[in-house]
């Protein structure tokens, strides 16, 4: 059942798709994340904003374990990620658990990262077939539907290099949708696009938000954050400085740091 958009933040525990608790991540001396809590419930659209180097992309990558946080816990549908320590480094101990989580948290990358040796349709059906063991015909059918949905149904048999950036990113979104994930993770999905192409990708993301899909979006696009999100998180220097509804965060800004950031990003002032 599609969820109503902009649903209320107060959710029951069973609705929690993804929860991050006390996430710490450092690279050598550099502390990128200094204890972050984040909860994504079903239907939430969480926008993470902040200047470059604030740790927002790293946090997103911790969520599907592309990065391993040194401290903190990750819960997926209430199930805790299991850790063990190997050569003084904490790593996930259950590969199956990690893959199950990743298959349920499809990621959309800044640089699209479509697999260059496959056609657009092959890109979309690859993981459903190899990971979800979906029937090829069924996967193809769904793939075509999704590509039509993002407006590039005519590009099925083209290769990524034959598509514009906006088309590639829409194909990447279709690829993520094809996993029928519990939540989608967007890592600056529009940052590599010029404004015209950006708009077509934003439209697709907006549609997904209206369908009530659970999404976490790292973005520099304040307008998209304002329009699409149910909840906005402002990260600075590895901590959450401010969070709340788009209205609270953008129109009733409390912290000086966020005010300064919004001013310099020019959209709100």
């Amino acid at each position: 059942m599609p969820q109503s958009p902009r649903r209320n933040q107060s959710v029951t525990q069973s609705d929690t798709v993804l929860a991050l608790r006390g996430i710490h991540k450092s690279y050598g001396e550099l502390d990128v994340l200094k204890g972050i809590d984040l909860t994504a419930s079903r239907g939430d659209v969480i926008a993470m904003i902040g200047s470059s180097g604030s740790g927002k992309s790293t946090l997103l990558r911790c969520a599907n374990l592309l990065e391993t946080p040194q401290q903190g816990d990750i819960f997926f549908h209430g199930e805790q990620v299991k850790w063990h320590t190997k050569r003084h480094q904490r790593i996930p101990s259950d590969k199956h658990q990690v893959r199950r989580m990743r298959a349920n948290l499809s990621m959309v990358f800044q640089q699209f990262n479509l697999w260059a040796h496959m056609t657009v349709l092959q890109n979309v059906i690859e993981a459903p077939q190899t990971v979800l063991k979906k029937d090829p015909d069924e996967a193809r059918e769904l793939g075509r539907q999704l590509l039509t949905k993002v407006g590039i149904g005519d590009k099925c048999d083209q290769y990524p290099s034959q598509l514009s950036g906006g088309q590639q990113q829409r194909a990447a979104i279709a690829r993520a949708l094809a996993m029928e994930p519990a939540a989608m993770l967007f890592d600056e999905p529009t940052s590599a696009l010029d404004p015209e192409l950006e708009a077509e990708v934003v439209r697709v993301i907006q549609t997904l938000a209206e369908e009530g899909r659970t999404m976490i979006i790292v973005t520099h696009d304040m307008k998209m954050a304002y329009d699409v999100a149910t909840h906005v998180i402002f990260l600075h220097d590895g901590v959450i400085v401010e969070e709340g509804t788009p209205d609270q965060v953008f129109n009733n800004t409390r912290s000086a740091r966020l005010k300064q950031f919004l001013q310099s990003s020019g959209t709100f002032g």
Partner: peptide, 12 residues
């Protein structure tokens, strides 16, 4: 990034 993407989608 091509390989990381595969892992991010749950490929072994």
């Amino acid at each position: 990034s091509q390989l990381e993407t595969a892992r991010a989608f749950g490929l072994t």
